[in-house]
């Protein structure tokens, strides 16, 4: 299971991010308004955390790819998918942070 979580780590973080920002906006809408400044800042901080986590995962995946212990085509494949998944998640999270950053 650990191997699967590592391979899918970037995509999982992406999912955590989009579910998180939806939840924050919904909670904000219940408590005050969805676009209240404080809640937007909370969403921004959450997006920042997710970005950091994805970046970290990307670095780990790249390190594993470069490591001599990553022997065998299957290991290499999983590390590659992990790295590419993180790169994609990085882009996607940045993209989905834009509504909070530059208006909506």
């Amino acid at each position: 299971m650990r191997r699967w979580i590592f391979t899918l780590g970037g995509l999982l973080l992406w999912a955590v991010h989009f579910v998180g920002v939806y939840a924050i906006a919904s909670l904000a809408d219940t408590v005050s308004t969805a676009d209240a400044v404080g809640w937007r800042m909370a969403a921004l901080a959450f997006s920042g955390l997710c970005l950091l986590a994805v970046l970290l995962h990307l670095l780990l995946a790249v390190r594993r790819l470069a490591s001599p212990s990553a022997s065998g085509a299957a290991d290499h494949f999983m590390s590659q998918v992990a790295a590419m998944g993180s790169a994609l998640a990085l882009l996607a999270i940045l993209w989905q942070t834009l509504p909070t950053l530059i208006g909506y």
């Binding site: 989009f18 920002v21 939806y22 906006a25 919904s26 809408d29 308004t33 969805a34 676009d35 937007r40 993209w95 989905q96 834009l98 509504p99 909070t100 909506y104």
Partner: peptide
């Protein structure tokens, strides 16, 4: 809310 639709749109 508009911000929610913006997230889903993105």
């Amino acid at each position: 809310p508009t911000i929610s639709t913006s997230f889903f749109s993105a």
